[in-house]
Design a protein around this nucleic acid. Structure first.
Length: 961
RNA sequence: GCCCGGGUGGCGGAAUGGCAGACGCGGCGGAUUCAAAAUCCGCUGUCCGAAAGGGCGUGUGGGUUCGAAUCCCACCCCGGGCACCA
């Protein structure tokens, strides 16, 4: 036998690191091992209580509370995940894991929002077909998320681009299409019920003709006018840069596309709309029932923009007819201008009217010649009203939204028409001006310069009279007065306060037939079609008359045709949008029998917007394989209802604040429609919403302003150097453009996934933005190393934990830690939970001798939600053969939370001067005596009596001299 | 302009009427080491002081309170949202 010579490994020789230290390579080994184990065991598969997906885990306790924890699903861009992306994912995962350990039945999974502009734009950049591109990106995301150790039920993961998924997106579209909003009942109803009501005469047709006398096309049009999804020719946001139209919500304040920052133009176009405005009041009212932050609720409230006021009809005094005045109402006049106002009480101060340039009445009203009394500035220098109006409208149409915003000087021209103020009979001139917007209210206003700043400005420019109808407060020296005060110059309203005057004038308007109290909303109907390839096709065909008809449910899914040439064409401003699906020639027409025998129909060539899939994906998580129903009602009820009498829905939804009015509003709307139609059990999708902060990173620019690789920058005495040259520090979103990305892969290599998870949770409160600093990550790794070292011998790899009892002090620290960690985790305060765990571990480090099992095990269990892999490993090393995932979270013994004696600070005049130790049960008098008896205090108090002594039980003593 | 957040050591942050700065990063000192790394121990808001101890200190100014980072008033700065919305 040859003598064997053993060499220490190179690594051990060079680094001289103990063989069993918890370092990056050990972490990686542990992590990959447990990830495979979890997968093999189906550890994160959650059982439904009924329906199809009954396999998987569920708590033994039949009364265990359910918990549906969700992230806003990502769109898999493929341009590289950085450490900022998974912050929220880790947050939900830690919470879900904590809740599993406290006995809850937890549903947690993740899907992919893979249709829509971002995915298509990315495909465009890579030149790949969107489907290939998307599928590759989804696969990458799945791998990256798995490497993080996220406990998702993989069986429930969906992608919006799966045919099996978008089949149901189309089905929901048909539900919406086949519904109308019954204002009396305040809910959506099947369109068939409206048809029945027309047919049996219980509901008259608009023109009064019996249903039976209407032609098929007339009936169809009438019904189509009522549907919640309808085609409308309306001014839309046309974005040639993206080759598509956009929803209002997708256009930024400066009139550019939210995606890609391309200019957006208004142009009329036939498009699909969704009647979200019917739900404005409910979307607003139900916000009160949600557990969301006020910031998000406020944004939604502002977007919905409810305001109370009145509609008032102003008869038009045309040149050839006597102006209709008096008490017979506006019906007698040839034309009336209806305005919306929040201040009907100021109608006596209306001295002119303004229509939006696009207002439909403008053509009818515009006079042939300037009437008597026309002032010079009113004409815009034109020879006739027709000419002036034409020129002004042309100029207004040229203006972009940005122009309008930047230049708020008042412009306008007189139409040559006059209207009659119903309360006074006064004739006032009618103008058009672009400060009145067609998209709000009625597109027309009564101008009351005395009480409205904009009207005052206009009145000054155009030399129009100003009548105050509210008495300004003493000392008011401004122009328009918008505050509270008694009515003046207002006939029968005089002396009333604003509220009373509003009520009185509305009564009068209603009695006299000149108007009525009403509520107005800023919210517009939702533009729902896009001229893009990568989206859900509409399950709609058009008949020979061009009326849309639903594809029967049996014909779903309407599959997206494979196209070689799918890219939108580069288009100029004046070109018409051109849906790429028009290039799938064999697909565009279809032979079908929709009840009138086989006929040829044209398919809808637009696709749905990105939001379609995200509007309802959470429902599919519940029952992802159901081929007969969008979601089994029993399963839906179980996961979406709320036992605590709250509105119900997803129990915790974490995502970015950027979806405050887009996804979160659309989704609520769809959910309410599904609720009205009986497909879901509650009116709201998301009970609790939490917005995680953003991770940003430092970026560095050299003297030329060029960004340099942040990784290569070194700090020397407060100055930053790159390649020896000084650079300036700033910070912003991580990404290629700022050259400051740090990827999870970098972190896995240096520290492992558990350290990354721990660090992201430790950086600060989950809802706060924070700046990434890679050099700080080591602190989280050190914690795990110390925990490891307190339980395991680094040299031998042997567990050092002993079964001897812990000292009383250590035991108290443990139980206090358990108590605090529980409440911190429950409140998503992971940063402070980690700090408490660190303190406990520091106690172990300090203590002489090995760690007692009664501390080691709770420590591992408390860490388990945060760092599941190392926890699982240590749990196994401690001799357990079950997973930590479902092991009960430690509970504090209340008896150990109270101390026998406590230390109390003693203040003199509010400044801490000393500390005394007193019995925890000591009463206030005893504490006071002890404080006054302290030598240092006695010295400060001196001979005199303290004026007052305040004893705050168990907190402190304050002696006032 | 209006509406939300926020402002605390060199840095991330903790404390929501009761000991300001928990926990971590960074820094300084020590132990260990031939040396270094790693590890462990100690110190680390600031000023005065040898020390004991004391002064000051949570954006600014005022107020309430025995006591304020925390509550109230006014203002400044930073971030976000909305904005000719009648």
């Amino acid at each position: 036998m040859c003598p064997t010579i053993t060499f220490p490994s190179l690594e051990a020789m060079s680094a001289d690191i103990p063989a069993h230290r918890y370092d990056a390579s050990r972490a990686t080994e542990i992590e990959l091992k447990w990830q495979q184990q979890w997968l093999d065991d189906g550890t994160y598969e959650t059982a439904n209580t009924g329906g199809i997906l009954t396999g998987g885990n569920r708590p033994a306790d039949p009364d265990a509370g359910k918990l549906f924890v969700m992230d806003m699903f990502p769109y898999p861009s493929g341009s590289g995940l950085h450490v900022g992306h998974p912050l929220g994912f880790i947050g939900t995962d830690v919470f879900a894991r904590f809740k599993r350990m406290t006995g809850h039945h937890v549903l947690h999974t993740m899907g992919f929002d893979a249709f829509g502009l971002p995915a298509e734009e990315h495909a465009r950049q890579t030149g790949q077909h969107p489907r290939e591109n998307t599928e590759a990106n989804v696969a990458t995301y799945r791998r990256q998320l798995k490497r993080l150790g996220l406990g998702h039920d993989q069986r429930r993961s969906v992608s919006t681009t799966d045919v099996a998924f978008y089949r149901w997106t189309q089905w929901i579209f048909l539900q919406i299409f086949n519904s109308w909003y019954d204002d009396e009942k305040g809910k959506a109803r099947p369109i068939a019920e409206l048809e029945a009501a027309f047919a049996d005469g219980s509901r008259p047709t608009p023109d009064g003709r019996p249903w039976a006398e209407l032609s098929v096309t007339e009936r169809r049009r009438l019904l189509n006018d009522h549907r919640l999804a309808y085609v409308d020719e309306a001014p839309v946001n046309w974005c040639p840069g993206l080759g598509t139209v956009l929803a209002n919500e997708e256009v930024t304040v400066d009139g550019r596309s939210e995606r890609g920052n391309h200019p957006v133009f208004r142009r009329p176009l036939k498009q699909w709309m969704m009647r979200i405005t019917s739900y404005a009041d409910r979307l607003l009212a139900d916000l009160d029932r949600l557990d969301w932050t006020d910031a998000i609720k406020t944004m939604q409230r502002n977007w919905i923009g409810r305001s109370e006021g009145a509609r008032i009809d102003f008869p038009v005094a045309t040149g050839n007819a006597e102006g209709a005045t008096g008490s017979k109402g506006a019906e007698g006049a040839e034309e009336t201008i209806t305005v919306f106002t929040t201040r009907p009480d100021t109608v006596f101060g209306a001295t002119y009217m303004v229509l939006a340039p696009e207002h439909p009445l403008v053509d009818t009203l515009t006079a042939d010649a300037w009437p008597e009394g026309t002032k010079d500035p009113w004409t815009g220098g034109a020879a006739s009203p027709t000419e002036a109006v034409g020129a002004y409208r042309a100029a207004a149409a040229q203006k972009s939204d940005l122009d309008r915003q930047e230049n708020k000087e008042k412009t306008g021209v007189f139409t040559g028409a006059f209207a009659v103020v119903p309360t006074t009979g006064a004739e006032i001139p009618v103008f058009i001006a672009d400060y009145v917007l067609m998209g709000y209210g009625t597109g027309a206003i009564m101008a009351v310069p005395g009480q409205d700043e904009r009207d005052w400005e206009f009145a000054e420019v155009f030399d129009l009279p100003i009548i105050r109808t509210v008495q300004p407060v003493e000392g008011f020296d401004g122009k328009a007065f918008t505050g509270e005060g008694p009515a003046i110059n207002s006939g029968f309203l005089d002396g009333m306060d604003v509220g009373a005057a509003k009520r009185a004038i509305i009564d009068w308007l209603e009695t006299e037939g000149f108007g009525h109290g009403t509520v107005n909303y800023k919210l517009r109907d939702w533009l729902f079609s896009r001229q893009r390839y990568w989206g859900e096709p509409f399950p709609i065909v058009f008949d020979a008359d061009g009326e849309p008809q639903a594809v029967p449910e049996s014909a779903l899914p309407v599959e997206l045709p494979e196209l070689i040439d799918w890219a939108p064409r580069a288009l100029d401003v004046d070109s018409a949008p051109e849906p790429p699906l028009g290039r799938a020639e064999a697909w565009t027409t279809v032979e079908m029998d929709l009840g009138e025998g086989p006929r040829t129909y044209h398919r809808e060539l637009n696709t749905m917007p990105q939001w379609a899939g995200s509007c309802w994906y959470y429902l599919r998580y519940l029952d992802p394989t159901n081929e007969n129903l969008v979601v089994d009602p029993e399963v839906e009820q179980y996961w979406m209802s709320d036992a605590d009498g709250r509105v119900g829905g997803v129990d915790l939804y974490i995502g970015g604040v950027e979806h405050a009015v887009l996804h979160l509003l659309y989704s609520r709307f769809w959910h309410k429609v599904l609720f009205d139609l009986g497909h879901v059990s509650g009116p709201e999708p998301f009970q609790k919403l939490f917005n995680q902060g953003y991770i940003q990173a430092y970026a560095y620019q050299d003297a030329r302003g060029i960004y340099v690789d942040a990784e290569e920058v070194e700090e020397h005495g407060g100055a930053f150097l790159h390649d020896g040259r000084p650079v300036t520090q700033s910070y912003g979103k991580m990404g290629k453009s700022l050259k400051n990305s740090v990827t999870p892969d970098d972190m896995y290599e240096s520290y492992g996934a558990d350290t990354l998870r721990l660090h992201e949770m430790f950086m600060g409160p989950l809802d706060q933005d924070r700046v990434w600093d890679t050099s700080a990550v080591v602190g989280s790794q050190r914690l795990l190393q110390r925990v490891w070292r307190n339980l395991v011998d680094e040299e031998t790899g042997e567990v050092t934990v002993v079964d001897a009892p812990a000292s009383d002090d250590l035991r108290r620290v443990l139980h206090r830690t358990i108590e605090q960690v529980r409440s911190d985790m429950d409140g998503l305060r992971f940063n402070t939970a980690i700090a408490k765990i660190t303190e406990l571990n520091n106690e172990l480090t300090k203590a002489e001798g090995p760690t007692p099992r009664e501390v080691a095990e709770p420590l591992v269990l408390m860490l388990a939600p945060l760092v599941p892999h190392i926890a699982e490993e240590l749990w196994a090393m401690l001799g357990h053969d079950d997973t930590v995932v479902y092991t009960p979270f430690p509970e504090a013994d209340p008896a150990l939370l109270v101390d026998e004696s406590i230390e109390m600070p003693v203040q003199v005049n509010g400044k801490v001067r000393t500390r005394i130790t007193v019995d925890a049960e000591a009463d206030d008098d005893a504490v006071q005596a002890a404080a006054l008896g302290d030598a240092r205090i006695a010295e400060l108090v001196g001979d005199g009596e303290p004026r007052k002594v305040i004893v705050v039980p168990k907190k402190l003593v304050n002696i006032v001299l």
